[in-house]
Amino acid sequence: MSKKTVTIKAFRFNAETDYLPYYKKYEMEVGKDELILDLLNRIKWEHDGSFSYRRSCRHGICGACGIKVNGKATLACKQNAMELVELFGDELVFEPQSKKRAVKDMIIDKGDFWEKHAAVKPFVEAEIDPHPTSETIMSKEQVENFLDADYCIQCGACHYACPVIEVNEDYLGPAAFAAAYRFTVDPRDDAGKERLKTTAELGSGVWDCVKCFECAEACPKDVNPIEKITKLHNMQFEQGVAKRNVATKHAEGFVRSIKKFGYLDEQDIVLYSEGLGVVKHLSEAFKMIKAGKVHPFDIAKKKMPRSKNLDEIKKLIEISQKNEL
């Protein structure tokens, strides 16, 4: 009674022999307790022994069986199949985490993931006394600071859900950032500043995050990588690692605007952040003037709207601001 007929459309590709990938359909009765991993197994065991995917622990801890189902990042051994049928209907599309990295069916070349993960020193770096006389004691708060980040199983779900990874090959990505955060706030570690510098670089670091929250949504262990990315941003300023550049000035420039107007001065923030680089925005500025969005004379006259009770805002900034650039 509780079974349902489901069609699985699986991505098939063998990089050694196939010119192009293709999709193959498998119909099966799915029970209410079956996992996506069970369905992967059944394709292999009941339909086609050559169907390939990674699997190992079946307990949501090894991170091998990450795939995408109808575009949703999924850890196959943790995800109930019926839940996804309820969400997407009775055709489930199984695809590798990244189609352009496909080696065979669900198996991808995860080399870029491991390389970027390694780049942030994902381990505690410390001078350890080989003959310690006492334990290193950590407070509850210190542990809680990195506990959720420590749940990461390197499955790659967030990394291959991140749109920046697809368009910027230098970008380290959400899993590497979550790891960088995890070890930087570990009280035993000495490499924090170095990690903060690595992740502060323009092009590869946290400033290139588009804030899409795909990583938070994708993570099967609720690591919430973007929350850690925000913390890394703040730590750059707290620990004096932040350099003045277009991205840091953009972040800090918000305070400058809000203090003056309550609102963000949309023209000033571009000018202030870019400096001379502002010339590259001229064609857009002309388009905005042409559409009447921006009035060239307003720029000179500074006809900015102002929040009511602006004094309150100024005072709150004065007494609450903690960071400086």
Binding site: F237, F254, I258, K308, L316
Partner: peptide
Amino acid sequence: LDEASCCGASHLQDFDEFLSLVL
């Protein structure tokens, strides 16, 4: 809500999380 200020658009949050909470 004419009294309201900018929400920080996630960028103020990157610079000074506490200040963004207050505003």
